[in-house]
């Protein structure tokens, strides 16, 4: 398991950070050019559809990160793997940021298309609940910092929070909501044209690179904190 030692990990972290820094701005410029200039406007929504290029990837990232941290927390609870603890701690703030961004950009998209900034419908409310789960999760690290109960508390939040994920996903099908149903399907044909799909995936790539960069820096910080605490034992 030498591959997972902090020494090995930190070498790869530095390499990945350098790699992301070297390509990030190029990918960002290409993504923004497609999202704001090259992609066509929607025949119904006009140019407001461009908000999709930041709203949809943000929502996907917010949902995915919570699913990952929930699985990670449960695995850590069972197998007590220290790396997993650092992994979920480093990921959670990124998930919170993108969940908040999905809500705010969704609201900015909602006003010109629905005529309202906010509605207490199933999709919007379940996203707000996800944001609260993120807040509880992050607060637990601060409140129960030195408590032995922390893994149990994180696991409880994860289990309750993960139930919300399919509710968010299927809320537009189960209930009558203002939010449109999914246009992109993993199984089946997507109802979105490639001229909009390409910018969407380019912006997803930009935000994923950003997430990776923040995650690696946070993970490295956590490793350094541990080394600093244990310096006298070295």
């Amino acid at each position: 398991m030498d591959f997972f030692s902090f020494g090995k990990i930190i070498v790869y972290i530095d390499k990945f950070i350098k790699f992301i820094n070297s390509i990030f701005f190029l990918v960002l410029i290409i993504g923004l050019s497609f999202a704001l200039i090259i992609s066509p406007m929607d025949y119904l929504q006009g140019d407001t559809v461009r908000i999709m290029y930041v709203h949809v990837p943000s929502a996907w990232i917010g949902l995915s990160i919570f699913s990952i941290i929930a699985i990670g927390t449960l695995l850590n609870f069972v197998f007590k793997i220290k790396n997993l603890y650092l992994f979920v701690k480093s990921l959670a703030p990124i998930g919170l940021l993108f969940t908040c961004l999905a809500i705010v950009t969704g609201s900015l998209w909602g006003k010109p298309t629905w005529g309202t900034w906010w509605a207490w419908d199933a999709r919007l409310t379940s996203m707000l609940i996800l944001m609260l789960f993120y807040v509880f999760f992050i607060m637990s690290f601060k409140i129960f910092k030195d408590s032995e109960k922390l893994p149990q508390i994180l696991s409880a939040i994860s289990i309750l929070g993960i139930i919300n994920i399919p509710i968010i996903k299927y809320s537009v099908e189960w209930w009558s909501t203002l939010h449109q149903p999914a246009s992109i399907k993993i199984m089946g044909t997507s109802s979105i044209h490639s001229s909009m799909l390409v910018p969407l995936f380019l912006m997803l790539l930009v935000l994923l690179l950003y997430c990776a960069l923040i995650f690696l820096m946070k993970y490295k910080t956590e490793i350094i904190k541990i080394k600093k605490r244990n310096i006298k034992r070295l």
């Binding site: 140019d47 908000i51 961004l101 950009t105 900015l108």
Partner: peptide, 14 residues
């Protein structure tokens, strides 16, 4: 197309 405020604010906030 008249929606500049909503679009630019979204990108700016992100």
């Amino acid at each position: 197309g008249g929606y500049g405020f909503y679009i630019w604010t979204s990108f700016l906030i992100v």
